[in-house]
């Protein structure tokens, strides 16, 4: 079988797909790509189904060698990346020769990116998904982050057509992001001042930000009757506030239940963009209605589906992101 060989694992490189629904009552979160829209876009760029397994790359990327000719695409935050000695363009498909080596270095303007390979990463499905669940130690490649010496199976090669991303993904700009929030998670457990602060203040992303939760620092949010609640079901995007008053936004590997009061839920349409934030970046919250959040999610999904277009007449390995691309008919 054709493989992708890992020569260096990077800071935290894992295999996700779009997640593992249906097992929350057993304590199993969905996991999956932290920005499902960027991951879907990367997959579409190489001709895969949106939910194919790919690589999620964090802060410093891996070094990889391709066991077969492949079409790859890197989407998400910008990383320094070199393919066989030449800079790798992002947000478009790139052809790799058999034996080709890709070195993805440091993130330049964000925290995470997604690397798709045509045919997908063909690790076995566990509970209906190929996503890594780090805490559970299953899924992805042996339930863990990639390390030097790993060999990942690749699926059958795709059509190899050149494609590019024609519209930008929703992401932070200059280290700043504003996301919509819904109120239903339990805001009655917080003071009026806390509720006002949540949308008036700017929060900074703490160094303790990972796939489980994005810890934020900023003005503390006070509870009316203590931080503890009878433990109840939680979801990605819920904003939990422990006793110290600083909020944590749950990510895709977040716990399925929690015993701290929650002040809001980040709208699903905006949740993926949190994956791009680096420690020190700034985050603001803006209130939205349930209807607005649903509409935004539908728009976001539709936008990804049409954002990728097949090109003709672009030079192989052209370095420019906005290389001429005539949509084929």
């Amino acid at each position: 079988m054709s493989t992708l060989e890992v020569l260096r694992g990077g800071t935290l490189t894992t295999v996700p797909d779009l997640g593992r629904p249906g097992h929350r009552a057993g304590g199993v979160p969905a996991s999956g790509a932290m920005d499902p829209f960027a991951a879907a876009a990367a997959n579409l760029l190489v001709g895969n189904e949106p939910r194919a397994a790919l690589l999620e790359i964090t802060l410093r990327g891996p070094v990889l060698r391709f066991g077969r000719a492949a079409t790859i695409a890197l989407a998400g935050a910008r990383f320094s990346a070199v393919l066989d000695g030449r800079p790798l363009p992002w947000n478009r498909s790139v052809a790799v020769a058999a034996g080709g080596a890709l070195e993805i270095g440091d993130a330049l303007d964000g925290a995470r990116a997604w690397l798709a390979v045509d045919g997908g990463i063909a690790v076995p499905e566990v509970l209906g998904s190929r996503s890594t669940h780090l805490r559970g130690g299953f899924g992805g490649h042996e339930g863990r982050a990639l390390a030097a010496g790993d060999r990942l199976p690749l699926g059958p090669p795709g059509d190899g057509l050149p494609r590019r991303l024609a519209a930008p993904l929703f992401a932070p700009r200059n280290g700043r992001l504003e996301v919509r929030i819904l109120p239903g998670a339990g805001e009655e457990g917080f003071t009026a001042l806390a509720r006002e602060r949540l949308t008036a203040a700017e929060y900074r992303v703490s160094p303790l930000a990972d796939r489980v939760g994005l810890r934020l620092s900023g003005p503390p949010l006070s509870h009316t009757a203590g931080a503890d609640i009878p433990p109840e079901g939680t979801l990605p995007g819920m904003v939990q506030v422990p006793g110290g008053g600083e909020p944590i936004v749950f990510g895709p590997d977040g716990p399925t239940t929690g015993g701290y009061a929650k002040i809001a839920t980040v709208a699903a349409a905006d949740l993926g963009a949190l994956a791009w934030l680096r420690p020190g970046d700034r985050l603001r919250f803006r209130r939205a209605t349930l209807g607005e959040a649903r509409e935004a999610l539908a728009r976001r999904r539709a936008a990804v589906a049409v954002a990728v277009e097949i090109c003709s007449g672009i030079e192989e390995n052209s370095r420019e992101e906005g290389a001429a691309c005539t949509p084929s008919t």
Partner: peptide, 15 residues
């Protein structure tokens, strides 16, 4: 997805 808590049930539609 039906997720019991100690005195609650969270119900969510699939993705």
């Amino acid at each position: 997805e039906i997720v019991p808590g100690v005195r609650s049930v969270l119900v969510r539609a699939r993705e």
